[in-house]
Design a protein around this nucleic acid. Structure first.
Length: 282
DNA sequence: CGGTACGCCTGAAGGC
DNA sequence: TGCCTTCAGGCGTACC
């Protein structure tokens, strides 16, 4: 569920708890949750003893950077979340906590940041250098939050598949998932079944603007909480109430009143308005 | 190339 | 009440 807006909310709320502080200890509650070759999965690789200097984001991925130059790739998957707790918290009493970073210094009281992920689709993957993290991220397309018309056209040009499928492909564009793909296509008045490579220049421009608009709106609203998404301060997001199509199959279109269609496209439940998103090129 | 299916994993929700 | 099935979905991978 966490897509770009939710991950960005996590980044913003988590950063103040991490940056400028030192990792006093890393607890591996579930060692197998940490990815990569065994030699690269040490406590030091997870930034134990390191100072934390940066928390960056690309698409739905977060990167925590240490003063040593080490870096940890973090992905929330479907149900991943970060809990920030007092240092004395008994994390063993909280289910599905896989990794925990104990933090000191920086003028705050000691704290612990726990990665909790019931479904375990999330990722914690250490890298020895920032360059290696960046190489891992090189398979991702450009970040969706700032995508412009020209860059989007370049991403989509070779594609003959449905635009919905292309938007979900993180190698094309990083950060859009099922919720925001449907919301952006609705705003851009494009059928999800249109061929990605056959959109007109005007349509690509509309889509790029729609993607930026829905992502910015969602970030401002704290993200979309469907069931259990919360940011690092424990706050749920309210953007679900603003969804125009996602989760509204069979209900009237907010624009024209026609009942919204729902179908499986690119193996994902897709909702759109058959009138507003007519599917014909203009 | 694209599309289809599956596995990973848990918990919520629906059917009976 | 309780058991069983289905669904949700990010992402990698296998296969046609």
């Amino acid at each position: 569920m966490p897509e770009l807006p939710e991950v960005e909310r996590v980044r913003r709320t988590l950063a103040p708890h991490l940056l400028g502080r030192v990792v006093a200890r890393v607890d591996l509650h579930r060692p197998a949750f940490v990815l990569g070759p065994p030699a690269a999965r040490t406590h030091a690789a997870l930034l134990a003893g390191d100072g934390l200097i940066e928390l960056r984001r690309l698409g739905k991925s977060l990167g925590l950077i240490g003063q040593s130059g080490r870096a940890v790739h973090l992905h929330l998957g479907m149900t991943g979340q970060f809990l920030v707790r007092d240092a004395v918290t008994d994390l063993a009493a909280i289910d599905h906590v896989h990794v925990a970073w104990h933090l000191q210094g920086g003028g705050h009281r000691d704290a612990v940041v726990a990665f909790r992920d019931p479904r375990r689709f999330g990722e914690v993957r250490p890298f020895a250098t920032v360059a290696e993290l960046e190489a891992h991220w090189a398979r991702l397309g450009p970040d969706a939050l700032t995508i412009d018309s020209g860059a989007l056209a370049a991403c989509l040009r070779p594609g003959r598949r449905a635009i919905k499928a292309a938007l979900l492909d993180q190698a094309v564009l990083a950060g859009v998932g099922n919720i925001y793909a449907d919301e952006a296509l609705f705003l851009a008045r494009l059928s999800p079944r249109r061929h990605a490579g056959r959109l007109t220049g005007a349509e690509v421009a509309r889509l790029a603007e729609a993607i930026r608009t829905v992502l910015h709106e969602a970030i401002e609203a704290g993200g979309s909480t469907l069931r259990d998404f919360v940011d690092a301060d424990g706050a749920a997001g309210s953007y679900r109430a603003a969804h125009r199509v996602y989760g509204r199959g069979g209900q009237p279109c907010v624009n024209c009143g026609r009942l919204l269609r729902s179908a499986l496209i690119a193996q994902r439940t897709t909702v759109w308005c058959p009138r507003c998103q007519s599917g014909r090129a203009t």
